[in-house]
Simulated scan of single mutants.
Amino acid sequence: MSIALVFGGIPCDAAENSRTFSFYFENDLFADTDQSYTNGIKLSWISPDLTGYAESGRLPGWSLPLIGRLPFINEPGLQRNVVISIGQNMYTPGDLEAEDLIEDDRPYAGWTYFGIGLHSKNERRLDSMEIQIGMVGPASFAEQTQKWVHEWRGDQCPNGWDNQIKDEPGLAVIYERKWRFLYARDIGKLGFDVIPHLGGALGNVYTYANAGMEARLGWNITRDFGTSLIRPAGDSNAPLSAQDPRVKSDHGFGLYVFGMVAGRAMLHNIFLDGNTFTDSHSVDKKRFVADIGAGVGLIIQRFKLCYTHVLRTKAFEGQEDDQVFGSITLSFTY
């Protein structure tokens, strides 16, 4: 197998040479609540296209045989990007004032993680493979984060973190495929596209199969794979081609609305099932959880700002209501 076969295939342009940095923030304060999935924050960076890096000597020699064995990597005509991310999620019961264990509500839990992934994509399809490693439990520092934010805002101090699930190293291996259909080919016009996805995750943090779809309608829609919530293999903000308004200096504005629906069939969720190797607080999870959301995206020059309002169905038995939260994503392409 030749290195040219692994990395060759497409010419460089402004999109392929660009890098994209994204900041994600999710919180239920947008629904005036403070419970369940109560906060998520994530930073991610998507590299420029790595086509030709093998021949340029920019990739270490030991990595080339490994990269060559990865699925989809040898298909000609694809862009290839590395994705690096770091984030923290936190989960709490509804009553933050109580110090004792609330047995029929979800456990206090935090997840702080580092992720590295590989994208293989063209105008129609994106394959994402990602590995996340991190810590669940006190070593995630979710308790300190929430208490600091609540003290700064003058809110009720969360008193039940002594009951959180225990320390456990976390590992998840994720794969997801996205497609793009019905998209406008010319910039400077009203456009519409549909982006379905299908994938799954395996690990001691979560194991699931997932599927969903996003539809976008507006002016100068970005040439990417949509706006994702904070989730594994969800980084899809990088421009695909020179037709993306973020890499065209004379068309640096866009505005669109979108709707999304996604579902997960959960086999394992440490934030509800409790620790894998030791006893901890747990509740009976629901096997299927769905997200329904709607939002708006704004593109100004190299910036993309999106807000999504999300309804998430009940995640465990005894949960009184579906959850509502807001998600903000700010991306910068350079």
Score class of each variant (00 low, 15 high):
residue 148 W to C: 13
residue 148 W to G: 12
residue 149 V to W: 12
residue 149 V to S: 09
residue 152 W to L: 15
residue 153 R to N: 12
residue 153 R to S: 14
residue 153 R to F: 10
residue 153 R to G: 08
residue 153 R to M: 14
residue 154 G to Q: 12
residue 154 G to Y: 05
residue 155 D to T: 08
residue 155 D to S: 11
residue 155 D to Q: 11
residue 156 Q to A: 14
residue 156 Q to K: 15
residue 157 C to G: 02
residue 157 C to W: 13
residue 157 C to T: 13
residue 158 P to C: 07
residue 158 P to D: 04
residue 160 G to A: 04
residue 160 G to C: 07
residue 160 G to D: 04
residue 160 G to W: 02
residue 161 W to M: 03
residue 162 D to S: 15
residue 164 Q to H: 06
residue 164 Q to W: 06
residue 165 I to G: 00
residue 165 I to W: 10
residue 165 I to E: 03
residue 166 K to A: 13
residue 167 D to H: 07
residue 169 P to H: 05
residue 169 P to A: 11
residue 169 P to N: 10
residue 170 G to I: 03
residue 170 G to N: 07
residue 170 G to C: 01
residue 170 G to K: 00
residue 171 L to Q: 02
residue 171 L to E: 01
residue 171 L to H: 02
residue 171 L to N: 01
residue 172 A to G: 02
residue 172 A to R: 04
residue 173 V to Y: 11
residue 174 I to S: 07
residue 174 I to Y: 00
residue 174 I to Q: 03
residue 174 I to F: 02
residue 175 Y to K: 14
residue 175 Y to L: 11
residue 176 E to S: 03
residue 176 E to D: 05
residue 177 R to Q: 09
residue 177 R to Y: 01
residue 178 K to N: 12
residue 178 K to E: 07
residue 178 K to M: 09
residue 178 K to W: 10
residue 178 K to S: 08
residue 179 W to Q: 05
residue 179 W to I: 06
residue 180 R to F: 00
residue 181 F to M: 09
residue 182 L to A: 13
residue 183 Y to H: 12
residue 183 Y to C: 06
residue 183 Y to I: 08
residue 186 D to C: 05
residue 187 I to S: 09
residue 187 I to M: 11
residue 189 K to Q: 13
residue 189 K to D: 10
residue 189 K to E: 14
residue 191 G to S: 08
residue 191 G to Y: 00
residue 192 F to H: 04
residue 192 F to I: 07
residue 192 F to K: 03
residue 192 F to M: 15
residue 193 D to T: 04
residue 194 V to A: 10
residue 194 V to Y: 01
residue 195 I to F: 00
residue 196 P to G: 05
residue 196 P to C: 08
residue 197 H to G: 05
residue 197 H to R: 09
residue 197 H to L: 08
residue 198 L to M: 13
residue 198 L to P: 01
residue 198 L to Y: 08
residue 199 G to H: 04
residue 200 G to K: 06
residue 200 G to F: 06
residue 200 G to C: 11
residue 200 G to W: 09
residue 201 A to S: 15
residue 202 L to F: 11
residue 203 G to T: 13
residue 203 G to K: 09
residue 204 N to M: 10
residue 204 N to Y: 07
residue 204 N to K: 07
residue 205 V to Y: 03
residue 206 Y to K: 06
residue 206 Y to A: 06
residue 206 Y to Q: 12
residue 207 T to H: 12
residue 208 Y to T: 06
residue 208 Y to I: 08
residue 209 A to G: 14
residue 209 A to T: 10
residue 210 N to Q: 14
residue 211 A to N: 03
residue 212 G to R: 01
residue 212 G to I: 05
residue 212 G to E: 00
